[in-house]
Design a protein around this nucleic acid. Structure first.
Length: 483
DNA sequence: CGCTGTTTACAGATTC
DNA sequence: GAATCTGTAAACAGCG
């Protein structure tokens, strides 16, 4: 059974206000695509300049398109949800809505804009319309809200997911259960999926040299150790981050599928959509109808892409010869149907709940992309919340020295330019952007208040955390509270 | 007992 | 087609 009903870490009502989106969209219109405005940072400039050069520079961004089968038929971007590539959509400034509260995924409800979604992709797409030839796929995917869409497997590798979780944790190290927690919180798919993915996570952690195990101190309670990203391999991982990985067109969560088939009584309460006065009412025929409509729409929209065309709806878990693990997954699904295994553990020990405080819905794709492209992220800053010690940051053999300028605008381009010069020519934007991505704090509340000091300063919070850890967990907790 | 972590094996996808 | 990457499955041991 689902044991994640406790995983609603966000206060009720912490929804993303629609007007926030509108405001952000309006703000975005003030930013020019050329990145020529003063407010548009150098990163925007860098990106836009290089956009003409190579598709690969934004290939990792196009990753957002590969699983767009989930279609919401939203109004054109020119209306309400104004796409904006370089603008700010500070959704993260609001505590994100709980992915479990009114989880539309279980019903195939339309996807919500904003949050861990491909909304940024939409913004990018519109921006890219001015850049002929860059939109390789030639389609305009709507938003895939991975946070609430349980039907579509996120197109990210497990290593990337781990990396994201580590980033979101804002700590240098993170426990396995926190990784689980973050993934399930931010990717609805995994909340409903067979927990074998956790095995893959563990496998990845153990196997991938990018991840270093940090043994738990003897006096530290809890199970297992911590994990962190090895700076030595960070760049390699970053290059892999968002690297397109071919995935089955639509991966309907089999566990969810089984529950849907089994009937509403099997749908956990946490998955019930409580909106629209349906509180407590689990998946009803109407909801299932919505699911069917969703699936039909998905199938219809897959027509544009032959790769997606073979995707089907319920029962279409990796179809044909494609799809990883299609052989054994069959048996697995069978077993799953018999007993939808779900981690019975609460995933977290009590002492880790505090640790998870910084994981609460911090993942803001829009802000992430915006930050990366606005130059808020910079290699020089090391990112106040970067888990990668800035002094260790290597980009293809080039040491990125921390600069003194606290803001990553012109300095970022400087770094990039310097890097390009020093490393020859093969430093690409993907690396830069991906690096920036991983250096980015998930923008949220900490944008205000005391955090401003930390964020704007050159203080390396990792070092701070390390210091805090060395001095005692209490201090570390206090530091975290400041964030 | 369940979670954590390691290891092995295999297969599909991607890259060169 | 080989190498590599990634995902999946499973067995096993250690630990709390």
């Amino acid at each position: 059974m689902l044991s994640l009903s406790c995983a609603d870490p966000w206060p009720e009502g912490s929804v993303v206000l629609e007007e926030e989106v509108v405001t952000a969209a309006a703000q975005s219109e003030e930013l020019d695509l050329e990145g020529s405005s003063a407010s548009a940072s150098c990163c925007s400039n860098v990106s836009s300049v290089n956009l003409d050069d190579s598709l690969t520079s934004l290939q990792w961004l196009q990753e957002f398109s590969i699983l767009n089968a989930s279609v919401t038929h939203q109004a054109p971007p020119s209306t309400h949800h104004q796409p904006h590539f370089f603008g700010h959509q500070r959704l993260g400034s609001e505590a994100p809505a709980s992915p479990l509260a009114g989880d539309p995924a279980s019903m195939g409800m339309p996807l919500t804009p904003g949050k861990p979604t491909a909304a940024a992709y939409s913004r990018m797409q519109q921006s890219l319309t001015a850049l002929p030839g860059l939109v390789a796929h030639g389609h305009c995917p709507d938003e895939v809200d991975y946070k609430t869409n349980a039907h579509i497997k996120p197109p990210y590798s497990y290593a990337t997911l781990i990396c994201m979780a580590m980033q979101a944790s804002k700590k240098t190290k993170i426990t396995l259960s926190c990784i689980y927690k973050w993934i399930t919180d931010n990717f609805c798919y995994f909340r409903h999926a067979d927990p074998t993915w956790q095995n893959s996570i563990r496998h990845n952690l153990s196997l991938n040299k990018c991840f270093i195990k940090v043994p738990r101190q003897k006096d530290e309670p809890g199970k297992g150790g911590f994990w962190k990203i090895d700076p030595q391999y960070a760049e390699r991982l970053l290059n892999g981050a968002y690297k397109k990985r071919r995935m089955p067109p639509v991966q309907i969560n089999p566990a969810l599928q089984n529950r849907l088939k089994a009937g509403p009584q099997l749908i956990p309460r946490s998955l019930c959509n409580t909106t629209g006065g349906q509180s407590g009412l689990c998946v009803n025929p109407e909801a299932q109808q919505l699911l069917m409509e969703f699936e039909e729409a998905t199938g219809a929209d897959q027509n544009w892409d032959p790769r997606l065309a073979e995707g089907t709806m319920l029962g279409a878990w990796p179809v044909g010869k494609g799809g990883p693990g299609h052989k054994r997954k069959l048996a697995s699904r069978t077993a799953m149907a018999k007993a939808p295994r779900r981690s019975s553990s609460p995933l977290l020990s009590l002492d880790e709940h505090r640790e998870l405080g910084s994981l609460k819905g911090n993942f803001d794709w829009d802000a992430l992309l915006d930050s990366a492209l606005n130059g808020e992220l910079s290699l020089d800053e090391g990112g106040p919340l970067s888990p990668i010690p800035q002094e260790d940051l290597m980009v293809r053999g080039t040491h990125i020295c921390p600069l003194e300028a606290p803001t990553g605008t012109a300095d970022s381009s400087h770094v990039l330019a310097e890097t390009q010069r020093s490393s020859g020519t093969d430093f690409d934007e993907e690396t830069f952007l991906a690096t920036a991505f991983l250096q980015s704090p998930w923008s949220e509340e900490e944008d205000q208040g005391p955090t401003n000091f930390l964020c704007s300063s050159t203080v390396n919070l990792d070092q701070l955390f390390d210091l805090g850890d060395s001095l005692g967990g209490d201090l570390s907790s206090k530091i975290e509270c400041l964030l």
